[in-house]
Amino acid sequence: MTTASKSSNSRLSAVSLDKSIGSPSDPILKREQAVTISDLLENNSFAPVGHNGGPYLLELEILDKKLVLSVTTESGEHVLCHHLSLTSFRQLLKDYRIVCESYIDAQLRLTPERLEAIDMGRRAIHDEASALLRERFKSRVEIDQDTARRLFTLISLLVARNSFGRGPAT
């Protein structure tokens, strides 16, 4: 999926997710992906270290259990390709997916207070994962907390899609 946004130097104007594994078949996941990309493109801070030629196009894919982050300018100039091991994210990705699934399952049967408690747990995991993502990217690209949160959501969706039919998304 590719979506475009308004221009600025230190920001993303488009995001593409690995097309080789297809788009999510689950309507809830499909909507989550679309909303996350839309929110990301609406408001983000993305500055590859040592480069001022944005806005940038970002492609995310999972290859050999690593996140591959490919960045180009809108004119097609290669900016960076970064491979990030997902090992340190394994438990966070697993916990995040479990909490998200619990929230979806609980929507019709729990009180708003209980749903809020589940959502607070999701946000805590999300915050921890986005802080780790910022730390792992800092030598290659500077991102703010909100951008990191949305990127983590996209990574979790990619991992889940990539793992479909091959066991848990970890």
Rank of each mutant, 00 (worst) to 15 (best):
S38E: 11
S85L: 11
E61Q: 09
L69S: 13
V15Q: 06
R109C: 08
V71N: 07
F89G: 10
S85C: 06
N9W: 04
Y96F: 15
H51E: 13
E74G: 04
L58W: 03
H82Q: 13
L86M: 07
G53F: 01
S7D: 14
E61A: 01
D64A: 06
L58A: 08
L69P: 05
P48A: 05
I21Q: 06
S5Q: 06
T73W: 00
S20V: 07
E32R: 11
V99R: 14
I28W: 03
A106V: 09
V71S: 10
S20C: 01
P48D: 07
N52T: 11
G22V: 14
K94M: 14
N43A: 11
L110A: 03
D105L: 08
V79W: 01
S5W: 02
G54D: 04
G76D: 04
L86S: 10
L93K: 06
V79T: 08
H83M: 09
N52E: 14
R97L: 12
L40G: 05
D64C: 01
S8K: 14
R90Y: 02
I104S: 00
G50P: 12
H51M: 04
S45F: 12
K66F: 00
D18G: 15
S10F: 01
V71T: 15
K65F: 05
L17G: 06
R90D: 13
Y56E: 03
D39E: 04
V49Q: 01
G76M: 08
S20D: 11
L92D: 08
Q33I: 10
Q33V: 14
D39Q: 14
E42P: 01
V15Y: 02
S23Q: 13
S38M: 05
D105Q: 08
S16E: 13
L29W: 05
V35W: 01
L84M: 15
A106I: 09
E32L: 11
F46D: 10
A14H: 08
L29T: 07
S85M: 11
E101D: 11
S10V: 02
P48Y: 00
S102A: 15
Y56T: 03
N9Y: 02
C100D: 10
T36R: 02
S20L: 03
S102L: 15
A14N: 13
S102P: 13
L12K: 13
D105S: 14
Q91C: 03
V71G: 05
L67Y: 05
S13W: 00
S75F: 02
R90F: 00
S13Q: 08
G22D: 14
S70N: 09
I21G: 01
I98L: 13
I104E: 06
L40R: 04
E32A: 08
N9R: 12
D26I: 09
G53S: 13
P27C: 07
D39H: 07
L12R: 09
Q107T: 07
A14L: 10
T73G: 15
K30R: 01
G76K: 09
G76R: 08
E32T: 12
E61P: 01
A34T: 11
Q91T: 13
K30V: 04
R97G: 05
V15R: 11
Y96I: 13
E101F: 00
C100K: 09
D39Y: 00
S85V: 10
R31C: 06
E59D: 10
N9Q: 12
L67G: 07
I104R: 07
R11Y: 02
H82R: 15
S102V: 02
L63S: 12
